[in-house]
């Protein structure tokens, strides 16, 4: 098994993800350069990155059932590319939020949550200014009916509460998957929560899940 970490100009935490895969889990990882000019942030986050040549390969990989995880910038790009439903608005209070949040695992039948138990609470950091998840009401209804909401912002006990929703996301959504469930986007950063030195190891579960999923594939 080999992890490919897509690197865009100006995307962040790709080195953290590389470190987590290589040094924490001892697995094989390589950077995949997007091969295009730096246009990030010109319009909406992810709006330009989706036109990079590598995105057609990412799309083809996903269509073959390959597991694709978009973290933060990556989630925004998957939304702009239409590989996941919805869009990101500026955070409700217009502030860049950089802090630990609590996430409730809603569904475990994805390659990135299969090592968790439903209702499992994860403490993982966020760092974003545009993470206010939006989708039209009929799309939200379909996401809920199809069990595509994978992580929700909650209080430390796993209860929904507006005060624990850091960005105003609809239905407290922190993560969604596509209908085939192999493409997952999440705003929190699991790669920043894989070592005790970094303040927690709950992010490991996301990596352990994909290792498990690939082993039984």
């Amino acid at each position: 098994m080999r992890f490919g970490i897509v690197v865009f100009p100006g995307s962040n935490c790709d080195e953290d993800a590389y470190h987590a895969v290589r040094d924490v889990f001892g697995l094989d990882a390589e950077y995949l350069w997007h091969k295009d000019a730096d246009l990030k942030g010109a319009l909406r986050t992810g709006a330009m990155a989706r036109f990079s040549p590598i995105m057609s390969q990412v799309r083809a990989f996903a269509e073959q059932g390959g597991p694709v995880l978009g973290i933060c910038n990556g989630f925004q790009i998957l939304l702009e590319a239409g590989m996941l439903p919805g869009a990101m608005l500026r955070n409700r209070e217009l502030k860049y939020r950089c802090e630990h949040v609590h996430l409730r695992v809603e569904h475990t039948d994805t390659p990135f949550t299969c090592a968790a138990a439903p209702g499992h609470i994860l403490r993982i950091p966020i760092g974003h200014g545009e993470g206010n998840y939006f989708a039209a009401p009929d799309v939200l209804d379909r996401l809920e009916a199809n069990r595509q909401v994978i992580l929700r912002y909650t209080d430390p006990e796993g209860r929904l509460a507006d005060a624990w929703n850091p960005n105003g996301s609809a239905n407290a959504i922190a993560s969604v998957c596509n209908e085939s469930r192999n493409v997952v986007g999440m705003m929190p950063h699991p790669e920043r929560a894989c070592e005790p030195l970094l303040g927690g190891v709950d992010g490991r579960l996301i990596f352990e899940s994909v290792v498990t999923a690939m082993a039984i594939r």
């Binding site: 608005l89 500026r90 409700r92 209070e93 217009l94 206010n132 039209a136 105003g168």
Partner: peptide
């Protein structure tokens, strides 16, 4: 512009 149904936090501010 944002659709009328979409909350505009910048406009509100």
């Amino acid at each position: 512009t944002l659709k009328p149904s979409v909350f505009d936090p910048q406009g509100r501010t």
